[in-house]
């Protein structure tokens, strides 16, 4: 706690405390329905914030979040009976980290739009590997997961979300973050300035995978039953990317806000019995934010363009 006090400003601590208090009190005052929506919101907050590390900072746009989310889910389904959920979460995260390091070696050599397409395939690849092993070796397709009660899952997700937000915030302000942003700007120049680009990209990819995996691991015990279509849904990959882009690449707060707004919006459309207009709206928002990106405007302008600088600005020359 003291370390946090030293590293965060009082405003940031207040905001974080408010976030924890509000989310934690939802099951007490809001009931089950509100809590179940909050669970989705919190998991998307964690996914988008984790996405910012590899995509927002290092500039490798990831369209395969479902790969690590689903891998986390499956690892949790396998490990929870042995380790309980509390042991399964870090174990699943560790598996995702290892998977990201292994997959990152070939994938992170691909640049620009080709990387985006490759990661879309990555989600499908892992889904098909899981389907193949499950049907051939375990003679099953789905798995029953051990369910935990709503409040426990909610609190775990709050801890998870806060951990991601803090991790992303500290990365952004660290030497590591400075290196990632240089890689995003110009990888060749970054390498010749002494940044070990391959190592940094792999590490960023790994950290992203860790938090996506831990989110999936928690969500597995909310699901009760998982199969490849539930664990690796394409919408997870797409929503995470859309939320990240609408919130602004590398904009932590923007991503969180757009995760909250878009998830709630989806719920509203769903409750009216017709979720399809939401897809249209999402498409329009995405096109707009891509078109306006060149003008360095994000749709969430009210939350201020993220300051791309890492260091404290220099005071005027004396």
């Amino acid at each position: 706690m003291k370390v946090l006090m030293a590293l965060l400003s009082s405003k940031q601590i207040a905001a974080l405390t408010l976030f924890i208090v509000v989310t934690a009190s939802v099951p007490v005052f809001g009931g089950t329905y509100a809590a179940s929506i909050l669970i989705i919101v919190l998991s998307f907050i964690a996914l988008v914030s984790a996405w910012q590390i590899i995509s927002g900072y290092a500039g490798y746009i990831l369209l395969g979040s479902a790969a690590f989310y689903g891998l986390g889910m499956y690892m949790s389904a396998l490990l929870t009976p042995i380790l309980t959920l509390y042991g399964a979460i870090p174990a699943s995260a560790a598996v995702c980290f290892a998977a990201a390091l292994g997959l990152g070696v070939p994938f992170l050599r691909i640049k620009g739009p080709y990387f985006i397409i490759a990661t879309l395939a990555l989600g499908e690849l892992i889904r098909n590997i899981v389907t193949f092993t499950e049907t051939n070796y375990f003679r099953t397709l789905g798995r029953i997961t051990i369910m935990y009660d709503l409040t426990t899952i909610l609190y775990l997700l709050i801890i998870n979300a806060v951990a991601v937000i803090l991790a992303v915030y500290f990365i952004k302000n660290s030497k590591f973050g400075l290196g990632l942003m240089s890689i995003k700007n110009d990888e060749i120049a970054a390498e010749s300035c002494g940044i070990p680009t391959t190592k940094y990209k792999l590490l960023a990819f790994g950290i992203t995978a860790v938090f996506m995996g831990s989110t999936g691991a928690i969500m597995a015990s909310r699901a009760g039953y998982i199969d490849p279509d539930i664990a690796f849904p394409a919408y997870i990959s797409i929503y995470t990317l859309v939320m990240g882009i609408i919130g602004g690449l590398g904009n932590l707060i923007g991503g969180i806000v757009s995760a909250i707004i878009l998830t709630l919006l989806f719920e509203i459309f769903l409750s009216m019995g017709n979720p399809y207009p939401f897809g249209i709206l999402l498409g329009i928002l995405l096109i707009l934010s891509v078109l306006l990106r060149g003008k360095r405007v994000t749709l969430l302008r009210i939350f201020r363009m993220q300051k791309i600088t890492v260091q404290k600005p220099l005071s005027p020359a004396k």
Binding site: L178, G179, S182, N185, S192, C193, I308, T309, Q311, P313
Partner: peptide
């Protein structure tokens, strides 16, 4: 060994000071 490029390669979306800090932090 440090080098410059014939076609300049600045980190465009970073402040000049941060650009220089990259060299100072990651170089020799």
């Amino acid at each position: 060994i440090a080098r410059t490029y014939q076609i300049v390669r600045p980190f465009k979306d970073m402040r000049v000071f941060d650009n220089i800090m990259v060299g100072a932090k990651f170089g020799r």
